[in-house]
Amino acid sequence: MAARELTFEIFRFNPQDPESTPHLQTFKLTEEPYMTLFRALNRIREEQDTSLQFDFSCRSAVCGSCGMMVNGRPTLACKTLTSDLEDKVRLHPLPAFKLIGDLSVDTGTWFRSMAERVEAWVHERAPFDPGALEDRMDDDLAQAIYESDRCIECGCCVASCGVANVKPAFVAPAGMNRIARFMMDPRDARNDDEWFEVVSSDDGVFGCIGLMACADVCPKELPLLEVYAYLRRRALGSAFLARKKG
């Protein structure tokens, strides 16, 4: 089988350069066995255009650095095999995030502000006691928390969600997932009532209109839709409870 020649159409724009305008640039590259976009992009940068900006770190789909739009789908470039793509490969940066340059976007700032907003840490019930045994936890619960904790903050879901794209105040898929992760955790002292304003609003889970793109693109295949359903039910439950209490 002769190696294919791949044509890359890459979005180029350097906001730091007053002369730069957004455009698409074409590169050609011969495909290699087991080639991922990690290798392809590095080869393009090293052999053809050293100014090309993109982000990789772990190159093994665990760090979440390399989200980009590959042929119209937000996904992790490092785990995208060129053999899964047609001869023409279109690469765009993730929408919904601030562009740093070319394929590189600022997911870090977004996720930090999300973490601050949903207070993504365990609100402790008591200070840590170094002398004590760990609190017990049922393994099923631990696994359920882990399932949500697996999110690598790649931002693919955010980029794929129409609402998150037009409404910056929306906590977006990854944010809702983070909320659910801490809601589930019995170590967290916050009760449903305290979560209410964050969850039960158009900026929270009711901002979601069920587009489902997030769940389809999530490279970690997180059960996002179940997460939202869980949040909706909890929001509803706490609204009723609060009413009963007076």
Binding site: H23, M69, H92, S113, R117, D203
Partner: peptide, 26 residues
């Protein structure tokens, strides 16, 4: 800021999640 979905068009960059709402609004 650029709209990367339709190269060329300009849009405001999303600043990320904003402030909380009040309880009544929620």
């Amino acid at each position: 800021a650029v709209d990367v979905l339709r190269s060329g068009a300009v849009r405001e960059a999303g600043p990320g999640p904003g402030p909380r709402l009040t309880r009544a609004e929620a």
